[in-house]
Design a protein around this nucleic acid. Structure first.
Lengths: 226, 226
DNA sequence: CTAGCTTACGGTATTCGTAATTATT
DNA sequence: AATAATTACGAATACCGTAAGCTAG
């Protein structure tokens, strides 16, 4: 199967006429007919019912055209994603967690992130602190949470909660965690009052980050501004 | 862009070595290198970082490989869909299953579905919950079963069994699990029925239900009445 | 006979494999 | 020197366009 086949199929399905479809595709009838035939042979099902007066979709064709459109759509999305990624935008956050982290607060924070920006993917990885630091340097993770430990390695750490939880990030990428925000084609992690430098394409937000105001009542209002 | 390019890219990304990737693809290094180059040129982003000792994915490549895999997956599903449609199925349910789901009950449920709506094709996919949620959003699956986990993402979840199993479905598609019902061009699972239905009455389907051939043989014919 | 899809055939473009080239350890 | 990726070039394959063939009304 080939993407060209899919485009041919979609056009023919829309026109229900090989001649007009060929015209729209800027090819002749003959290669279009062959492409459809090859596609049918490939998927193992007849897609069109060739009658004397025109062409009609079979049931299999009706089922297939939705998928065909979706395939092309997914491909276009993928192209957009990879271009955005090449431009520096990151649509996902890989967060390393130390064992024994206060799960409740993290859960609430992540629930909030997902609720506000569901398009941003957040992945959690549990590991010891040493592995966290290594992973941060090796670009295995974007940020990490750990119990404050007097971090002296080459990472930027900021306390974020009143129980001693900190954010650890690579030193050349100085930001702290407060709010995930969607940007054009990507995601950003806004640091608010803490920092404002770039993190390899993750730009600091200009707006007012108040990520924690919707956390459970006990921790509401605590955090970044103290 | 070409599907061949995607397959090449995925293999190289998995091997991180052009030679081994070429071997797996049954081609030589040379056309593989050219294919990758062409793909990079097409998507407009460098996908691999060619270092002296080996190949590494760029960030854009890391983003792209997920989409590349998804594209191929969607295509495989589409092929399955059209073949099933040609075989006479008028509806389909793609159900994502978390690992560790109670297979016996699912088997019985599917037997019931098969009995009530034999024209509806049911496909099962096993994957972790995170992938389930993503797939639901991407319309890779119609519904999912998982252990209850306090799902608060943008899905509709309904407890369906007394051991904590829930159904997760996209929020805009309003149905839950228990009974399969044919709709225009598709199928839906109606909610509530299972909760009020006496599961002891459920019998395994007689004959050879096509929907079941993907389940392990060991669970075939088992039933809900424990 | 006409309309419309399909098959036959020759030319162009793409891709492959072999081999030479470059680069790094 | 050796390993690994990239270009160079002839051969095989795929695709297009023109033209002829088939079928229904």
């Amino acid at each position: 199967m080939n993407l060209r086949h899919l485009r041919c199929f979609i056009t023919v399905a829309e026109e229900l006429h090989f001649g007009r479809a060929a015209e729209r595709l800027h090819i002749e009838q003959s290669p279009l007919s062959r492409a459809i035939k090859k596609l049918e042979s490939n998927v193992g099902a007849r897609l069109f019912e060739r009658t004397s007066r025109g062409v009609q979709l079979t049931w299999a064709g009706k089922v297939f055209i939705e998928d065909a459109r979706r395939i092309l759509l997914v491909i276009e999305q993928a192209k957009g994603n990879v271009r955005a990624a090449a431009a520096g935008f990151r649509g996902r956050l890989r967060i390393a967690l130390s064992d024994g982290i206060a799960q409740a607060r993290l859960t609430a924070l992540l629930a909030l992130c997902r609720e506000e920006e569901p398009d941003i993917e957040i992945r959690l990885f549990e590991m010891p602190l040493s592995q966290q630091l290594k992973g941060l340097k090796n670009d295995l993770y974007d940020a990490g949470f750990t119990l404050f430990d007097g971090l002296k390695a080459d990472v930027v750490a900021q306390p974020v909660w009143q129980d001693p939880i900190v954010v650890t990030i690579p030193s050349e990428a100085s930001f702290a965690c407060a709010q995930v925000r969607r940007t054009q084609g990507g995601a950003e992690l806004s640091a608010g009052a803490l920092q404002s430098r770039d993190v390899r394409g993750v730009r600091p937000a200009t707006g007012t980050p108040a990520a924690f105001h919707r956390l459970p009542t006990s921790s509401r209002g605590t955090c970044l501004d103290h």
